[in-house]
Design a binder for these strands. Structure first.
Lengths: 137, 137
DNA sequence: CCGGATCCCACACGATACTG
DNA sequence: CAGTATCGTGTGGGATCCGG
């Protein structure tokens, strides 16, 4: 099925690799903790298509609060995934656009999201089975 | 089962897609919220190689607490990514092994982890630049 | 050896009101 | 329009002790 041992990173001599990934020294967690926020992936999905303005993003993701929209966009900008451009028009408008780094990151991320969408029912089934069988014990 | 065109999922007609992904109705977040836990990806990385016992995993990820190791393994089992087998030996031993579903999920996940490891420095640079320039203002 | 039970805290996230 | 400021909460996660 899948060829494991991705490019290089995971030669998976686990004893020598994983043991060094403590909390303060793990690049994977350092990078992914941002992406795995509640709204990051959805905003990246939107911006992977084309740039959007603040209000547009707000309408695209209706159940996000202004606070979290601002904060998530700021964090994504901080990590270099998106650019923020202010146009000093009469009512000011701000446009967010995905950077090159953001696109290169969204490529594998979108595959994760696709997998999640396609296998959602399988995961839900596994959960129901687990809850039904093992919980009473 | 998936009424919402997840197959193509990302043709990114955002107006018609994202707006429906509210908190209670988003398969992507439902699946990924588990994976994006602090320890899930590391344990999946270890188990993608070969099965491990509880104590072995504990030694592989030294800074994890027993509580979180137990809980994370339980959640991964619940979602169908790993199997748990108890051998009733004198001191009981428990082995965890990745399932087929787990391997199919780890394939895109490992690509995300590879990207994170390879682009860690770029992200860190972006952060330093952002903190230096924008924070004072 | 493999956990469960309990206590506790930090922080992500939400709701609301206010500003340039 | 595009944010900031403040307050409150749920929960992911750590430390520790207890049990089969």
């Amino acid at each position: 099925m899948d060829q494991r041992t991705p490019a290089s990173l995971l030669p998976l001599d686990a004893e020598s690799q994983i043991s060094r990934w403590d909390a303060t020294n793990c690049p994977v967690r350092d990078v992914m903790s941002q992406i795995s926020g509640k709204w990051s992936s959805l905003l990246l999905l939107a911006l992977s298509e084309k740039p959007y303005r603040f209000g547009e993003l707000r309408r695209l993701v209706p159940d996000i609060s202004q606070r979290m929209l601002t904060q998530t966009l700021r964090d994504l900008q901080r990590d270099g995934y998106i650019d923020r451009t202010v146009y000093p028009t009469k009512p000011p408008s701000v446009e967010y656009a995905m950077t090159q780094l953001g696109h290169s990151m969204f490529d594998p991320l979108s595959k994760m999201m696709t997998w999640a969408a396609q296998n959602h029912s399988a995961v839900r089934d596994a959960r129901r089975r687990f809850d039904a069988s093992d919980l009473a014990g």
